[in-house]
Simulated scan of single mutants.
Amino acid sequence: MGPVEFLVLAFPGERIGPDVVAPLTALRRSGGVRVIDTLVVVKAADGSVSAAELAEFEHLKDVAPAGDSLNLMGEEDAAEAAELLEPGSSALLILVEHVWASEAAEAFRSAGGRVAASVRIPPEHITEAHQALANAS
């Protein structure tokens, strides 16, 4: 199995549009990622929170076809994600396996290796570093 990642993708508004999940759907269909579980969390303008499986939304269900999800996320995950949201916003919680990396992961394990650390670098940090280098020239 490749690396598994839990993401909370937050959006303004109480509805996640199909254009937002289209790239994820394409990655799933191409075999780049395997969607293990999903959850949509909505924090209404009045602060109330609701959560539902992605497959319950007709316009979003292609991200994780029915029967593929393991239902590993629940109320506790929804509550924690809601703490990150402003009223009148929503989030897509997604648990994905990076299938593209599974061959490398298998080679690491076969050689007795392990991931000793993993740090996600925000893209804006890379952009800032490139800009700083360009300004220094």
Rank of each mutant, 00 (worst) to 15 (best):
V119T: 15
V63R: 03
R120P: 08
M1Y: 09
L7E: 15
A91C: 02
A64P: 00
L95F: 00
E83K: 12
V115G: 03
P87V: 03
E14H: 06
L72Y: 00
S30L: 14
A104G: 11
A64L: 15
P65N: 11
I16M: 02
I121Q: 10
L54E: 04
G113V: 06
V4A: 11
S110Y: 01
A101G: 13
G13P: 02
L93W: 03
A44D: 11
L60W: 01
P122C: 05
A91N: 10
S118N: 05
A78R: 01
E76W: 08
G17F: 10
M73I: 11
S137V: 09
A79T: 06
E97D: 12
E76Y: 03
G2Y: 08
T127N: 02
E5Q: 13
S69L: 12
V35I: 13
T38G: 01
G17S: 08
K43R: 10
V20M: 07
P123M: 06
E97V: 06
H125V: 07
D46L: 03
L95Q: 13
S89P: 00
R28K: 13
D62K: 06
G112M: 06
V49I: 08
A81R: 05
S137N: 13
E76A: 15
D62Y: 01
F57G: 03
G113E: 08
L24M: 09
E128D: 12
T25N: 07
S90D: 10
F11G: 03
A52V: 04
P123H: 12
A104K: 13
P3R: 14
E106L: 15
P23I: 04
H98W: 15
L72C: 04
V40T: 12
I94V: 15
F108R: 14
L39A: 05
A82D: 01
V63W: 04
R29D: 14
V21H: 02
E75D: 15
H125R: 15
A78I: 03
H59T: 13
H125E: 11
E83G: 11
P3Y: 14
A104F: 13
H59D: 01
D68Y: 07
T38P: 01
P12E: 15
S118D: 00
L72A: 02
S30T: 14
E106V: 12
D68P: 03
P18D: 03
P3F: 13
A105E: 08
M73D: 08
